[in-house]
């Protein structure tokens, strides 16, 4: 079957999973992740390719792709910011912080800066409620944020591609004292 945009490597990475599941549809999330990794975002062609491989109709793929904020249906910048908007973060100033990010970057929610550095998305709770307001940027968390911290981390990312404000890997505290 001829694919439109996905490479044969991506195809192999997807079809390799088939045997692990009772049906091909179960591989959908994995397939979308592979497709996004390869092409940067889920274009219509990429989703059609996934549909072809999994023997689904394109809308069955689209249905799932639009449900997850981690999937991008538009090209995104180098750094994707997911700003938490759920209640605990909202109580400690998430909305104001998000507005600050928008002003600072000059983009609205869902938009990408003209230099393709940043895309801003809003998302529901990221399970870091005790340390809000917080955002996730690519694979890192940034917590206890203030406008000043946001400015600094955006500058860092733009200049060096990383920032030491990123939270360290989380360890489960040893509460038993053992």
């Amino acid at each position: 079957m001829k694919l439109r945009v996905l490479s044969s490597a991506a195809e192999a990475a997807i079809t390799l999973e088939f045997e692990k599941y009772p049906d091909k549809r179960s591989v959908l999330l994995h397939a979308l992740r592979v497709a996004q990794q390869e092409t940067g975002y889920l274009s219509e062609e990429a989703m059609r390719d996934v549909a072809t491989l999994l023997e689904l109709t394109p809308v069955q793929v689209y249905d799932v792709a639009t449900f997850y904020t981690l999937f991008h249906l538009q090209p995104v910048g180098k750094h994707v910011i997911y700003a938490c908007k759920s209640l605990p973060c909202a109580l400690v100033g998430a909305s104001a912080l998000c507005r600050h990010i928008q002003n600072r970057l000059g983009v609205g929610i869902g938009e990408t800066t003209s230099d393709n550095q940043f895309t801003l998305k809003q998302t529901e709770c990221l399970a870091s409620c005790g340390s809000g307001p917080m955002v996730q940027i690519n694979d890192n968390y940034y917590e206890y944020l203030t406008p000043a911290k946001v400015d600094r981390l955006l500058d860092d990312l733009r200049a060096r591609g990383k920032s030491d404000l990123a939270s360290k890997p989380f360890k489960i505290p040893n509460v038993t004292g053992a």
Binding site: T57, V59, Q60, Y62, D63, T66
Partner: peptide, 9 residues
């Protein structure tokens, strides 16, 4: 036929 989906969230 599966022409319809529940899209966006």
């Amino acid at each position: 036929v599966n022409a319809l989906g529940s899209i966006d969230r």
